[in-house]
Design a protein around this nucleic acid. Sequence first.
DNA 1: AAATTTTGTCACTATTTAGTGACTTTGTTT
DNA 2: AAACAAAGTCACTAAATAGTGACAAAATTT
Lengths: 214, 214
Amino acid sequence: MTDKTPPGRNKERSKQQLLDAVGKLLKTEGFTGLKVNDIAATAGLDKKLIYKYFGSRDNLVDEYISSLDFWSNVSQDQAPPVITDGGQDFTKHMLLQQYDVLDGNDELQKLMMWGLYESRKSLKAVADEREAVGEVLLTNITDPFFGKFAKEYRSTVGILIAGIYYMNMYAGVNCNTFCGIDITQPEGKQDIKNALVNLVDLFYKDIEAKKQEG
Amino acid sequence: MTDKTPPGRNKERSKQQLLDAVGKLLKTEGFTGLKVNDIAATAGLDKKLIYKYFGSRDNLVDEYISSLDFWSNVSQDQAPPVITDGGQDFTKHMLLQQYDVLDGNDELQKLMMWGLYESRKSLKAVADEREAVGEVLLTNITDPFFGKFAKEYRSTVGILIAGIYYMNMYAGVNCNTFCGIDITQPEGKQDIKNALVNLVDLFYKDIEAKKQEG
DNA sequence: AAATTTTGTCACTATTTAGTGACTTTGTTT
DNA sequence: AAACAAAGTCACTAAATAGTGACAAAATTT
């Protein structure tokens, strides 16, 4: 782990080192640990450069946040080519992927907590982007399928996603059970995933039945 | 709103004022706002008293946290006298109550975020207590009913509770939609509550069917 | 290679926050 | 009411963090 930064001076590289330092500190210390001195020290550079290159700590932090892109892949990666089941399979995969993206991803977990705690423009932008990505899928895939039940689907999936988020954040700090489930353990993770899949199946089955009725 | 604090000196009252100030600041500023100077100013007292009466800011804060009791009532208030439906009704009521306890309760929301963010002993105690309260209900009411499906129930309810928590915290900061649902609005709240009740019903119905099968 | 610009460091000042010793005020005891 | 004890204030020191001017080192241009 001997960091072999090539010698010499380079503005762009230094800027990147500062941005990286923000990420590293966010992961290890949380957002309260993003102090000018510490960022500079972590980057192995002088703090003056933060002001020189970014104007302020806040600009640096915002630029770091904006550079992140945790969610865009959720839309691309796995929207199946053709949807014939009203998105049932897709919904399940999407939920499981959301789970996996978050699981053990300290940086993202800390970022989401930060977003829950502070209403910072750049953080809200992250939330908005995730919401926008989701909205495309909802509007194009599930809304048409569910028709008058579209809102029920949205509420249901919303709860499930929110549940995934909270559970992972909870597990990140409190190495602890939640409702007796320990999702720091592989077994607990599987339990949650099973429950998610099961709930989606139950929901779809129920809606199908309701549709039949009239 | 002219605070009419009776005049005179009183140690116990001052201690309480300091504890109250912590709560007030937590609610308005979040846990990062719990600075000695601000706590004292909010209480209208000198900060020296914090050290005199509590030893340190941290002790004061811990004493504040320990004084809270958001969860104990969840067990008492509404465990119905006799359970004949495997806790189906109880589960629904419990979830809705958890929702209502959190909804608009800035102090509790901030406290939960704090607990997600920082692993502080007194905060962990709060989480543990909530977990303990839940465990009693799970062990006595639902586990016996569900038998080999007990873990499925726990996972499912865990996700739902976690979803409730996250959604409320999310709404607290980002005055924003989540999966297209805006739970800052009464309509959105009702949508979520309906979805919760629906999911519980579906789950119970499914388990009943599985029990019948074998 | 001299001149010039850019990159980076250092030592300093400023500000914010925490913590405390000496004091004053108020209440209580004798 | 004098003496004492407890409650509370104030002005200060200490520590942590933010921010900057002057300079040094390196790279680039001429």
